[in-house]
Amino acid sequence: MSSHVVFFLVPGVHLLDLAGPAQVFSTAADFGHPYTLSYVAEQPQVTSAQGLPLAAELDWPELGPEDLIVVPGWRALRLAHGPAIGATALRAFRDHHVRGGTVASVCAGADALGRAGLLDGRHCTTHHDVQDELALRHPKATVVRDVLFTTDDRVITSAGIASGIDLALHIVATRHGPAVAAQIARDMVVYARRNGHEPQTSAMLRHRSHLDDTVHRAQDLIDTRFDEALPLPALASAVGVSERTLTRLFSRATGLTPLRYQQTLRLERAEHLISHGTTIDAAARTVGFEDARMLRRLRARTS
């Protein structure tokens, strides 16, 4: 299903707040996940904080529940000194959320969502320099400090600047799976995608902080088929190297053998299933173990 991403631009918008998420969704479209991007403002041209003039549309497109509004941040020492945002735009934010859509912000953009009433009763975050002010301006919100992003009832806020990339990759991972998000991060040379509320725990992304294309291609195969038998000869053949070379490159890049990496993915998925009430035996079968003994041994090693 195609999704429309609308970026709402204000004077003084930070380029990376805008360009980071836009690049993520544009790359997702390149990989066959259809996203249409558009840019709306209250004047036909806005000048970014970095001095680049940006053209924008004045009319809001029709949006459905699968679509997304993103409000990038802007340059201002205080939120109170930020740009005025008219009633039409604030109503567009609210109406889209009421209709089941998702609304997101980067950095100071959280204040725009707050002005629309979308932070009331929800968790949110923003750049660390203005977290206290955001809490004062929107006392019904719960400001979560020192995290990259928060999600609460289709309202997603991120800390600022580069964290907009993390926010966008999170949205992609939620909609299309972590393997797609990892593929996009790799293409963007964003070597590790970070999580919002917690330290990076996803093995699928934690072991991507390297530059070896052969290993990345092997990981792509393992990520999408971790619950299947993947013999080393077949994996090496698929990426065009010998078994010995693949094992050497893989271990040097990730610290794991291909088999251990696959087992790590299986264990992580099994732990998620068990935490949601699945029995150990059922979880073991779901993630590809022939019986639960190997899963129990792996869990014992990490406990």
Rank of each mutant, 00 (worst) to 15 (best):
D59C: 02
A89F: 00
R137L: 15
Q43I: 01
A84G: 05
R94P: 00
D187F: 10
D132N: 11
T257L: 14
T302G: 05
A229P: 11
H123L: 13
L148Y: 04
P44Q: 04
S202T: 05
L68R: 03
V70M: 14
A41M: 09
S3Y: 01
R244M: 02
L63M: 13
R91I: 01
D153F: 00
Q50V: 09
E243I: 02
D223N: 15
A19L: 10
R78M: 13
H276M: 10
P44L: 03
A84M: 04
D220I: 07
V130A: 04
A108W: 03
G277P: 11
H276I: 04
A238Q: 13
L54D: 08
R94C: 00
H276A: 14
V215Y: 06
E42P: 06
S275Q: 12
G164C: 03
A92C: 04
R99A: 15
L221N: 05
H123T: 13
P65R: 11
G32H: 08
R99Q: 14
V287K: 03
A76N: 07
S2I: 00
V239N: 06
S209Y: 06
Y261A: 07
S242Q: 09
V144G: 07
A19V: 14
R75P: 00
P233C: 08
A56C: 14
A80I: 11
G51V: 06
V103G: 09
F31S: 12
A56W: 02
I161K: 00
V172A: 10
D281L: 05
P178E: 14
H14V: 11
S242C: 05
E290F: 09
E290I: 10
P178V: 11
V190W: 15
L148V: 01
D212C: 09
L256V: 07
T125L: 06
D153N: 13
G121V: 09
D132A: 13
L205W: 12
M1G: 12
H96C: 02
V172E: 08
A238T: 07
H176A: 09
H138T: 01
S209E: 12
T102L: 11
P231G: 02
Q219L: 14
A80W: 02
D213P: 01
T88P: 04
R193F: 01
R285V: 09
T245Q: 12
A110F: 03
A253T: 04
L52G: 02
G100R: 04
F289C: 08
A116S: 07
D146Q: 15
